[in-house]
Nucleic acid binder design. Sequence first.
RNA 1: GGGCAUUUAGCUCAGCUGGUUAGAGCGCUACCUUGACAUGGUAGAGGUCACUGGUUCGAGUCCAGUAUUGCCCA
Length: 876
Amino acid sequence: MNIPAQYDPSLTEDKWYAHWLEAGHFHSTPDDREPYTVVIPPPNVTGVLHMGHMLNNTIQDVLVRRARMQGKNACWVPGTDHASIATEAKVVRRLRDKGIKKSDLSRDEFLGHAWEWTHEHGGIILEQLKKLGASCDWNRTRFTMDEGYYKGVIDTFVEFHEKGLIYRGVRMVNWDPVALTALSDEEVIHTEEHGKLYYVRYAVLGEEDRWITVATTRPETIMGDTAICVHPDDERYKDLVGKKAVVPVVNREVPIIADDYIDLEFGTGCLKVTPAHDMNDYELGQKHGLPTIDTINADGTMSAEAGSYEGMDRFECRKKFPEELERLGNLVKVEDYTNKVGRSERTNAVIEPRLSLQWFLAMEELSKPALEAVMNDTVQFHPPKFKNSYRHWMENVKDWCISRQLWWGHQIPAWFYGVGEDEYVVARTEAEALEQARAKTGNAGLTMDDLRQDEDVMDTWFSSWIWPIQVFDGLHKEDEVAYYYPTNDLVTAPEIMFFWVARMIISGYHFRGEAPFKNVYYTGIVRDKKGRKMSKSLGNSPDPIDLMKEYGADGVRVGMLLTSPAGNDLPFDDKLCEQGRNFANKIWNASRLVQGWEVDEAKAQPEAAATAVAWMEARSQQAMEELDAQFAGFRLSEALMTTYRLVWEEYCSWYLESIKPPFGEPIDGATKKATLVLFERMLKLLHPFMPFLTEEVWHWTSERKGFEDDLCVASWPERSAFDRDLLDQIELAKEIVTGIRNIRNDNGIANKEKLELKVQAGDGYPVHLEAWIAHLTNLSGVEHVTEKVKGAFGFVLGTHRFSVPFGDGFDIDAERAKVQKDLEYQQGFLRSVRGKLSNEKFVSGAPEQVVENERKKEADALAKIAVLEEKLADLS
RNA sequence: GGGCAUUUAGCUCAGCUGGUUAGAGCGCUACCUUGACAUGGUAGAGGUCACUGGUUCGAGUCCAGUAUUGCCCA
């Protein structure tokens, strides 16, 4: 076989992905096996793959592929999210580019455009995931607005409404004046921004030249003031409480009230209370029975209540209004000020707290079992540090505003039959709604034309929170959900712990009485080299598809996982993918080597090879033991590193070098056979991380007859007892090898030149490994001696002493310096050990085992020092 | 402002219940090319474990404080 020296992923990846699909390896149906289920965090339907997806889905695929090989019925359910606000914003933008305004369209016309966009761009991201090798069950692909799913969302709404948990209410909400919709708290991003703090004085009614001064960052809301508030203990203003102040410009008389909410230190200690435009003021207003005057329209312009400013943008008004205050003598001073400003996650518009009538879901009772489940580890968080913030949020959970003033999404199934805000019914279908409305009104003549459905849609998360149930149509039928639910592992970003994870656990308990998954693995944020979050606007995110073209999907997968412990940010660097690609190439070449060996069945197995086989057998078992622990703890980076070192360092650098026959010679049958067994084990361990390359070379190692022989569905290697003593002995033998190589290196002795080794063996010297050592270091022979060897390079390991007789012209000074350095190290070591042993308290206080250990170290160090001193004397 | 984390080699990270003068990968340095792979091999250098105090026979590991960086919440 003529195989190129370099691995070319483009020749294998598409081929094997198509092969796996054809074989149906990723498709799952319920059977007798233990299920292993993962539901994908559904990406936005019109999104494209970014580095965050790459990380997230690589992790999921590693877990799923490993489970599949372990004989579980692995089911990874893919799908997409309709992403109400994000998608609608994109559609609006596209229509605007075509010169169409959303307001010129009917709801149905707009939805037509949105569906068109969805069909055009939807699913691109799923195709991209296939390039990554994601082993999803594509037959199960769901969309949060496909027919069955839509129905599930509506049913959920109706059920909670029937239980009295969904209600309508006037609340202060986060209003996005650009998207013209309410947002949940989680969709608002707070950042520090520079602004100004305006000091404005209000005349106190009935007192000559008495003023009360407030500090505000939002002077444009002054016209909506309905009180001035001071702290009840504030001596400065005590006598003013109960009096009235006059709001400048609009000349409204408002009460001066007292409340301990006020921060004495902030500004002047006086607060203007504007219940219509500030969350806290609203609560103060409720508490003190203040009127609410709304001076800002939904689109962010000033309302009729703002008098001559009507129609002016709120930020323009913020500039103009203080000018009028100054003319009137009410503006005291203006300071520069930095404060937190909330902006819409989607449109970046400054959020306007706004009173509006919205739909809410009462959360307090619902969330209790979900809090409990995480705190008692029924649902385990990885890493567990996230339990803290989860608890904090769940203990302070607020009612969920689930309505959005958008068109793209699940329309709220409420129909109004009258003009009053309470004159509505909630139903699964129009027919049901009509029936209910007739019953409620007693008017049997009511028709659909008399009903008007609520214009709003539901928050996107109100559909994705039932994802682990409804991807199996679990709200409507039991067959599949009973088998696959609860799912096993969820892999997601901590940013959406509240949006999504917490709510899935809540809905899981509500609908199925148990949590939707057992483990939640939180990935970190992918950052660039400078530590910045990767984002489209910064343009610092590489295109994953380009990366996969350059380094291969396997290379990128390895790159993503190399430095990403759970919950830690991933400082991404192309270098990591390069490392992954190099690793792929290494495996490729190791395969080439093994593949190329001719076998001579008559040839006896060399002792060195037999040793190597026994050692590699034990070493790979030991690595599998480590891997199991690492996977159990979701320490995937460590698991990858364990596999990486096992394959590269131990299998390639030590094992293959140990068994390699001399150039041009065949290998003996026993060694070749054992090597193939070991190599297949390596491929299995590698497969979850590097599926394409491993599947390719898997098919070289032996004849594969059908789909069932694919590595993708091969059985995970079985654990068995292994020879730990041999592993320890080999570690010592490796040090001997290194010692001899060092002598060659330091003295410029070529590898071809045979050397003689003389050994003064101490206790536990691994004499049976000598053939192996000799093979790796090209020795002419090993001689055991009892006397010290003169005229030789030497090194000491434990109580064993090794010498290599000098050849011609060696550097005696360099050798002496080396011995001297070693001696100093040993003397320092001895001092530290003796420091402990001479400490009365250590000897009496520390456990016997520990003291014993120190005594042994002391003895070893003394022996080594004696040898080194002797050696030094020889050299002088 | 409140809460939670972080701080160990040039970089990215391990180091579990305190007990080898601290480990890995990458990078770096030296040497090595007819031989699986230079996307490689062999070897090497590199750390007062953020700082200050404390507990202990013994602290990277526990406690307190300070500083640092980051995240979440208000």
